[in-house]
Design a protein around this nucleic acid. Structure first.
Lengths: 302, 302
DNA sequence: TGTTATCTTGCGTAAAACGCTAAATAGTGG
DNA sequence: CCACTATTTAGCGTTTTACGCAAGATAACA
């Protein structure tokens, strides 16, 4: 019996539907099934009555639900109580890009500091693309990141907002801009002729690669750059056409200097931006606190 | 947080000594250390104050101890309550040798049937040597077995009584008996001349092999037989010198027909005989019930 | 009768837990 | 004062567990 299993059981006891609980808990149906089966073996009695069509709590199941609620409640209470005592001792380390600090993180951190004034936040900034590996490597507790295409099972991701990936070009007249405008007037961009400034690594780099491959485009890469902010900066200098989340383009100091290229016929994917953390670390009350504040700050996150 | 961790914590909270708790719980010190460390990370505060010499509960630790006691108590209560309701449905399967049924098991089963009249016991008998593999293979819940030399971590073993492994020879005058007596009179058995009847496999077979190897003895194997009872039977027929636990020799119907050979200068090991089960299965209340009854029936087991 | 929704099971893989051994540290006795 | 013991923690390789995927099974439904 562990807290995770209790959570799964309570979810199923509420939905009375293994599949829906699985979806809600971000786990496969089979994992839910086996978790319940394990509990039943430990208790020695079936907790649910399933007849392929309906799932119902047995009498034992109802009693177990009481126990589960009580135990889980007390555990969380204890965690909060003891955990918050330790605020002074602990600190939460957070990895994010410069843009994230000013946009997404600002309201979260404001809330957090007023709720938990005693917690120190150790913030590291850098290329957003490195966030996931820093989390996996245990170097930071939390990272603001784009949801990776493949999410490790050790990790949890809390989506906070969405922003489309966009191409952008210099706003001021220059060779690159004229070339793009000409192409657009003729009906389509000749990618082979446009200098492209792309992310060096990370999710957006993979997405762009997929997008190009699907369309059979062999682009002319002008530069591979670490950090979307740097890409936008280079674009604003007229060095080429770049790619970055719309959020970054808008928030960049040089926002005036670049213009979004909207390719309606073949849009780039929309990014899910949020917090990433190891499940393990999320058991720590400090980390969980920041996570929860973030979720409350962006309730539309769903 | 899971029940196992709570148990470890409570043990350490009592002994205030990681090593001793490790020994008591049949786990390594490092496992104890890490289990406590995990709990501390989950709670967000140290539960023990350790200064290399002393281990003390912190204030958080004392609060956690209350929680742990309460939770573990309720869990066990629930397990017993719901588990015993299910008696009618469940059955416990038990693997043992014929001898075990009549000796070791008799008092246990008597107790058990009066305590839990509704539980069916599905008993399978056979060569004791197969018990461990039947447990590991999940074919039976419990097995009466000799403690294996290597105990899988998935398994738990409850020692109930001890019995020395013994050589035995025919009690009636015959060629084999005379030969042995002659050898003994001259100071030592000439193993190469004595027909030996040995276990086909299992712990006693391994032990005998070790014993022989250590002494550089190349025995004359007359027969490899499955089951100690069969060995004793063959010995009583005058076919050779056999090896079996003293318990089996005494309990065998042909006990009169065989005589124990006491080799004081180089005794065979003493066997620990008891119950074996998968830890997993022991979580089931039914299995646990029989296990507990056995422990109560042989309290001198320690 | 085919389709859909739902739970369970087999199999290969990824993560967690463990034991062993070594390191670090403090008390003890010769 | 130093060897020696007792104790907790950390690295490393191995065992055990949990998971996701895909197939199986079963019942409702169209």
């Amino acid at each position: 019996m562990d807290t995770r299993s209790l959570g799964v059981f309570l979810s199923v006891a509420e939905t009375l539907n293994f599949s829906r609980s699985g979806a809600a808990l971000h786990m496969s149906v089979s994992a839910v099934s086996r978790t319940v089966a394990r509990l039943e073996a430990e208790v020695g009695q079936p907790l649910f009555e399933r007849d392929r069509r309906n799932v119902l709590l047995t009498r034992a199941g109802r009693e177990f639900r009481e126990f589960a609620r009580r135990t889980l409640g007390e555990w969380q209470h204890l965690q909060r109580q003891l955990g918050s005592e330790g605020e002074l001792a602990g600190e939460v380390s957070l990895y994010c890009s410069v843009t994230a600090t000013r946009t997404l993180l600002a309201p979260i951190l404001a809330s957090f500091r007023s709720d938990y004034p005693a917690v120190d936040i150790m913030m590291h900034t850098g290329d957003q693309a490195d966030g996931i590996s820093r989390i996996l490597g245990g170097q930071d507790d939390l990272a603001v990141s784009i949801r990776p295409l493949e999410l490790s099972r050790r990790m949890d991701f809390l989506p906070l907002l969405h922003s489309p990936l966009q191409f952008c070009m210099p706003a001021a007249p220059c060779q690159v801009r004229e070339r793009v405008l000409e192409d657009l007037a003729r009906g389509g961009i000749q990618w082979s002729g446009v200098p492209l400034i792309v992310p060096e690594r990370g999710t957006t780099q993979e997405m762009l690669e997929d997008w190009l491959r699907e369309r059979g485009i062999r682009p002319r890469i002008y530069a591979q750059v670490a950090g979307h902010e740097a890409i936008v900066a280079m674009v604003s200098l007229g060095l080429g056409v770049g790619i970055a989340p719309q959020l970054v383009i808008e928030a960049s100091g040089v926002g005036e200097g670049v213009e979004v290229l909207s390719l309606e016929e073949a849009p780039l994917p929309v990014l899910s931006i949020g917090l990433a953390a190891l499940r393990q670390r999320l058991a720590s009350p400090l980390v969980r606190a920041l996570w929860d504040v973030a979720g409350r700050t962006y309730p539309a996150a769903l």
